[in-house]
Design a protein around this nucleic acid. Sequence first.
DNA 1: TGTACATCAGTGAACGCGCGTTCACTGATGTAC
DNA 2: TGTACATCAGTGAACGCGCGTTCACTGATGTAC
Lengths: 243, 243
Amino acid sequence: VTPAPPSTRRERVRQATTQEITAVARDLVAREGSAGLNLRAVARSLGMAPSALYRYFPSRDALLTTLIVEAYDAVGLAVEQAIERGGPQGCGAILGCVHAFRQWALDHPHEYGLIYGTPVPGYEAPDDVLTPAMRTPDAMLGLLRRGLESGLITLPLQEDDVPEPVRAVLTADHAHHHAGPPFPAHAKGAAMQFWALLLGLVSGEVFGHVPPGGRDFFDFSVRRGLLALGTDPRALAATPSPA
Amino acid sequence: VTPAPPSTRRERVRQATTQEITAVARDLVAREGSAGLNLRAVARSLGMAPSALYRYFPSRDALLTTLIVEAYDAVGLAVEQAIERGGPQGCGAILGCVHAFRQWALDHPHEYGLIYGTPVPGYEAPDDVLTPAMRTPDAMLGLLRRGLESGLITLPLQEDDVPEPVRAVLTADHAHHHAGPPFPAHAKGAAMQFWALLLGLVSGEVFGHVPPGGRDFFDFSVRRGLLALGTDPRALAATPSPA
DNA sequence: TGTACATCAGTGAACGCGCGTTCACTGATGTAC
DNA sequence: TGTACATCAGTGAACGCGCGTTCACTGATGTAC
């Protein structure tokens, strides 16, 4: 996060103030959603003149971008840590990962909405957010790769089972690429389906579009999704859900 | 929609104006999202004074509520019509239904966001929206019931396969009830999972949170979801996707 | 070590804007006799 | 059929508010000699 230690006193103060600003802004978004973010309220809360904020951010959108990047990084970090805690083999990491994702979303509903909800109208995301946005998907694809290599996951489909046009779409997609060799189309398709299920379950719960199923129902659904993904049933059944 | 034919001339004009207002408001939301809905713009577009709108709606929120109800009704209608077109047996109705849902969402992204996206901050939905909100889920549950009765769908799980706490959650949920006798817990769970998958796929596509898979990928994913639901594979494979 | 200058954080007032809502009013439409 | 009154759609001005952003400024922090 800090590339080089800030030398001068001024730089240190500046960095601290910047962090204070984003912290206050994050609180504001957490309480009222992205529409509630406004510079005057941030300034008020910091005891500054509104114009002073322009020393730190060139516009409201720039501040919003920072918050979006921070939100992506926060989920990403939560997910990565859960994977580590889950251990190197078996389903512990997988279950830990998805539960961490859900838990972060429930703990930070407005920040979740910022990145996985309705796009903020009039806001155009700059390229800077692409990398942090891929942090969580990358972590999950890493799990998939590990699972395929270790034999924990055996995709129930062959490459041929994927209809030609779908295969074309799946292999043509180079926009969202991640580290490592490419996945075969059927693996990519399965991953995207699982991701859609996960987003649907979590968004439904966070936004209230679905009757509340709670943690148990989420766990149950995710396990069924993992089975559909080709996860070894015995291994999955033997792995308890994270606390 | 019209309970009794409006008798007096005044009432007819009033009704026409009301419809004009909601039509303009709907356009505004369609172009700029729910945050873009503002009374002054509606009045401007109609050539009225802003205050005149208060003869028709007591507040901005009331107008928003009307739009939300209309959106629920519009998807609901689209889905119901697709089901009818799909025919009385087989998977035609099911595939038609989900494709109609997706298509409506893509055709009306902002209205979709209004009802299935991030909740509008500060807006509290009155009870009036509950009934229209259930229109689409009800239609789909009707399909499930029909499928179970005809044997087209055979749930892969038994009641006992659902862990006790999950079963408790599923049977306790009386808030969102629909017509007809209750479903057993495992059917309800399966339905909710499929609904979550559907919302995830569609929201991901509409909001751009997922690499674009398009119609073919959606069809492919939904078919896999239906198989996981226990739909007869042969019948499913024999049913083409709607045009 | 001390002085002259440059940099930059922060101030305070202002600009221009748009919003939801209220209120006293005018004039047309409907109703009762 | 005609008149007196009630209802109600729509006007126009105003209230009070909050927003993002600009701009000329002051004073403290840092830098070069």
